[in-house]
Amino acid sequence: MLEADGLHVGYGDAPALWDISLTVGDGELVAVVGPNGAGKTTLINAIARLLPIRRGRLRLDGVDVTRATPQEVCQRGVAIIPEGRRLFGGMTVEENLEIGCYRRAARRARSESLDRVYAVFPILRERHRQLAGSLSGGQQQMLAIGRALMARPRLLLVDEPSLGLAPAVVDQVFEVVQAIHRDGVSILLIEQNAAKALEIAGRAYVLEGGRVVSEGRPGELLTQSHIREAYLGGGA
């Protein structure tokens, strides 16, 4: 589905990611964990083509998208749940969802997708005419997930979905991400909460200081003591 090969990404003159290679297979749930400032969000934004890629290759279904526009990546079935939600706060809940299905292939399924999202998050149906900016944090995260689902994605980029949410809501969010995965969507999950992410991921990469320092199955990663210490709070 997604192949990154030796990606270098930078803001201005300062490189933020060095030589990142990772893959997400069809129907896989892959996690990228790492501390704050490791470049996790930069990675997601580069894959969504919101940041220029300096060097390396990015492929979607074998097609080179290293120089593609965000719109082209979107047309190929990639949707994003960005860090901090980034909803269109001055637009209604339903309008936010509609932007989710803006791409042509998704527009035709608008009402069907709406029903599906409202079935998963009934609170969004209740508030569909309310401004997105007036929702609570948890509801905003649901809307951000719903917006991405409206795009009928084949690959979902999920960036720090648990950030700033109450523990009960975090559990709910992770359950929804797993449910989306079970429906056959490939997922690249970026998460600071490594314990949670490794619980549901099939494979994971550890990102530190802009480089991939480790990769493998969660079970294998957890046997490496420095990863346990760094991300799971010592000798767990």
Partner: peptide
């Protein structure tokens, strides 16, 4: 309209609007 909604979305957050296919 789609165009109108896309327009309002891109005023609020052009990057995210672009990531959902708005130009």
């Amino acid at each position: 309209t789609w165009v109108g909604k896309g327009m309002r979305a891109s005023v609020e957050d052009p990057d995210i609007a672009a990531a959902f296919g708005v130009s």
